[in-house]
Design a protein around this nucleic acid. Structure first.
Lengths: 329, 329
DNA sequence: ATGAAAGCGCTAACAG
DNA sequence: CTGTTAGCGCTTTCAT
């Protein structure tokens, strides 16, 4: 038994489909009319078909947030922020996972093209020309939470991770830590590149020589632990490590513990993202707050604005970092 | 400039829209025809409109997973499992958040009714008659990952948390811990109820007297910490605490540490869910594995099966727990 | 093998 | 204020 359509409701109420549609959309109608329609709707358990509706009006009232890995706590912060903004604006938010590969990101943007949602916020791990092209060609607005070249002409809101790393390095100096190592994620990713450069610059700016710099396989806990192992196999003389995100940081904290090194007494550890994990771990993790919540909020606002007016010139927002000092440093 | 439609492609290729549709859907056509269509598609950058398509064929090839809180790591485990199964079956998975209230859950199921997706896996925190009714009336299949009455006649896959708690209690006995307290989440939730009963039964079965039983405000880290504080304010003589999920467990671990109590030396801590957080925290958390991954997988399979055949009798799967012993106990 | 045309369920002119 | 009707973009008979 199939669902009732608007025609069934109209028949049941003894009115035209147009009138049903009007009542449902709050357009002017007599008391009497509204009553009849509402009763018929209730009786039949009628629910409008969102596809048909959006096919006609051209909008789905759905927005998509695409992230690389739902297991990364930084994304839950961002998700919460985006959700808050878009639902206040009357949109439903759905989240999808892209995975780590560009091709999947491109496929997502392409597929988004028609009908799935009215807009997309994407936080890509890797960016290439294909991705940028697919974003430009996408017929629904997309804003990227991350870094793409200015000439791409797309709305972006990104973090300032070099500045964030500078904050971390300076904090370490303040606490008399000079022998600092860096655990990065893959350098062929957008955040990986930015952080590699940021670390190098920050060290140079403070006339510090890096103890070591190791590249984890991805931005996960397991990779962090493994990279921490590699680091400690080679460099024993260090008193601080900065990790490219919180998951990585927690991974090295475990490896440190496994080798009998205490945090922060022997080695200070600083993460990045200041995600919920940072306060949940033990000791609580000092972490560079890259403004994930604000980035999510701003990205959502940008998206909403562009849906409103597609002709506005693309904006590039960068949100500034701060340091959340906890007990690991 | 609006997107090309199938009509534009047909015009560009000098063929009929029907032929374009056929080629795109892999139906028989001459080489020549296929070539022309494909070139036109490529030139115009044509992407089919999924709404129009699904309006016609009645399917969206999209499935939805609805969870209460994306910040709860147990859901990421489940999400990953669901994703794997449904994407292998050619569906796209989207995730939405319901929040903690039943009304929102109901609204979601109702709204799902037409056009958003071909099916729904929902993991409800709270269940009432309205929710069950909306699930039964929903015109797309929905399977619930959680506990609803058998008479509701819906596909479910749930955990056996009483059994899980029994495992935890027995493990504590083995390690000579007898003074055990329980931190539960809200008892007006599905998992809260099950776990309250499970704890009481497990203690009774082992002739143990609970030291205390406190109810946190929700299943979050912050609530766990707060509840831990309440617990420790009143009960000083305890050597183990079981928490209703990992987030809660980590919260009490922090409160324990704040009061100078060591884990596991002074107090053993056991969580539930065996989420990624359990191995990330320090010391790594012993946790009852409630089979989140398997539940996700089975739920997805059930959904797929029901989409295939809506007449099959509802199944109720329960997956058995195991204990992941780590260093916190 | 291909084209013409009907229609999926809905909204928005346009009449009345 | 209400009803009739033309499509939104697509797939799918039904002819050819």
């Amino acid at each position: 038994m199939s669902r009732p359509t608007i025609a069934a409701v109209a028949r049941a109420a003894g009115v035209s489909v147009a009138s049903v549609s009007r009542v449902l959309n709050g357009l002017p109608a007599t008391e009497e009319m509204a009553k009849r329609v509402q009763r018929a709707v209730a009786e039949l358990g009628y629910v409008p078909d969102s596809r048909a509706r959006s096919l006609k009006v051209g909008r789905t009232f759905q927005l998509t947030l695409a992230v690389a890995d739902v297991g990364n706590p930084v994304y839950v912060t961002m998700m919460r922020a985006v959700e808050e903004v878009v639902s206040a604006a009357g949109y439903r938010l759905v989240v999808t996972t892209t995975g780590p590969d560009v091709v999947d990101e491109v496929a997502l943007v392409r597929g988004m093209a028609r009908g799935y949602a009215d807009g997309l916020v994407i936080s890509p791990l890797r960016v290439d020309d294909d991705l940028i092209k697919s974003i430009q060609e996408c017929d629904v607005p997309v804003v990227v939470a991350g870094n793409v070249p200015a000439k791409a002409g797309v709305d972006t809101v990104r973090a300032n991770s070099p500045k964030g790393i500078l904050l971390a390095v300076e904090h370490l100096l303040t606490t008399h830590r000079h022998k600092v190592a860096f655990i990065n994620g893959p350098v062929d990713t957008v955040p990986g590149t930015a952080r590699a450069k940021g670390f190098t610059d920050a060290m140079k700016a403070n006339s510090l020589q890096p103890v070591a710099q190791v590249e984890a396989e991805d931005f996960t806990f397991a990779a962090g632990r493994k990279a921490g192992g590699e680091l400690l196999d080679h460099s024993t003389d260090l008193d601080a490590v900065i990790a490219a995100n919180d998951l990585l940081a927690v991974g090295v904290m475990h490896e440190l513990a496994a080798r009998g090194l205490r945090v922060p007494d022997d080695v200070a550890v600083i993460g990045m993202d200041d995600s919920e994990l940072a306060e949940q771990t033990f000791p609580p993790l000092t972490s560079v707050n890259l403004g994930s919540a604000e980035r999510g909020r701003r990205a959502a606002e940008l998206l909403l604005a562009r849906i409103e007016d597609d002709t506005r010139t693309p904006r590039r927002i960068v949100v500034q970092p701060s340091l959340s000092v906890r007990r690991s440093s």
